[in-house]
Write a protein that binds this DNA or RNA. Structure first.
Lengths: 150, 150
DNA sequence: CCGTATCCAACTAGATACTG
DNA sequence: CAGTATCTAGTTGGATACGG
């Protein structure tokens, strides 16, 4: 990580020329920030990941999905989520003209490829969760309200 | 989850028994969905990724960050974003007691490890962007408003 | 059973002005 | 330069009721 060791000597202004060491992430279109936003817009919402994770295990019906998702997702949110995923070609929706109607959802190949990404996210999260928790409580302590004799 | 497979007997539809094939994602705590949400809550907001990407190249000052980010981020948003990242131990903030004040931001080791994840997201996004664009326009066409002779 | 529509609460983000 | 405070607008998410 670059030798830049925050000069502790009263340096009035450190050499700004130290920056830019390793271009870990190289973007062809900086304005677009590689398009990471595309994925994040897809996964960033509150429910998409749950649906993808559940669907990663196999075909599911609407109600099955709703009951499989931890927090109680409303039909509205589930509908919106699967529609978005369907629109982007991540999920395939199959309607059986029966009575009562039956609809099945499953991941497409594209959706399955996303699964690996989600796995990576989960691995990172699990691996560094303790570190984050520690940093967080440390920060909270340091920035505790100086209101009273706290 | 449990094996609860809602009685399929009355269903005249397809073989629902096909489901559940490969457990691509295995969670220890299903209620928490592996904790992917942790990462997403961090990266899901509109600006965090930009900051991480920029900081991946080296140390940056507040103003440098603000100018490096494509869309015009407000001071407020940049402040909130770096604060959050700092709180989670992803970013290190160094203040130089000079006049005028100077503050530098840099990724911590934890932050750098996140960089790889962002890289993976970017790669996936770039690789599948065409497929998504295609699926999306196809969906839009199929679901076009039947209002008029469009 | 599956999905849509409407209304409403909460949060996020932007603009602006002001302080150390 | 760096950061905070305030106020406002846009978006997301949830509850409920209703339609196919």
């Amino acid at each position: 990580m670059s030798a830049g060791h925050t000069a502790v000597t009263t340096t009035p202004a450190p050499d700004a020329t130290v920056a830019a060491a390793e271009p870990v992430i190289v973007c062809e279109t900086p304005q677009d920030e590689c398009g990471v936003r595309d994925v994040l817009d897809r996964l960033g919402d509150k429910w998409s990941v749950y649906v993808v994770v559940e669907l990663a295990s196999g075909v599911r019906r609407f109600k099955e999905l709703q009951r499989a998702i931890p927090a109680n997702i409303s039909q509205r949110m589930l509908t919106l989520t699967v529609r978005r995923l369907e629109r982007d070609g991540l999920v395939k929706r199959t309607v059986y003209p029966t009575v009562p109607p039956q609809v099945e959802y499953e991941l497409t190949d594209l959706g399955h490829s996303l699964t690996h990404l989600v796995k990576a996210l989960a691995d990172w999260s699990i691996a560094h969760r303790p570190a984050i928790a520690t940093a967080r409580s440390a920060w909270d302590t340091a920035h505790a309200e100086p209101t009273a004799g706290n």
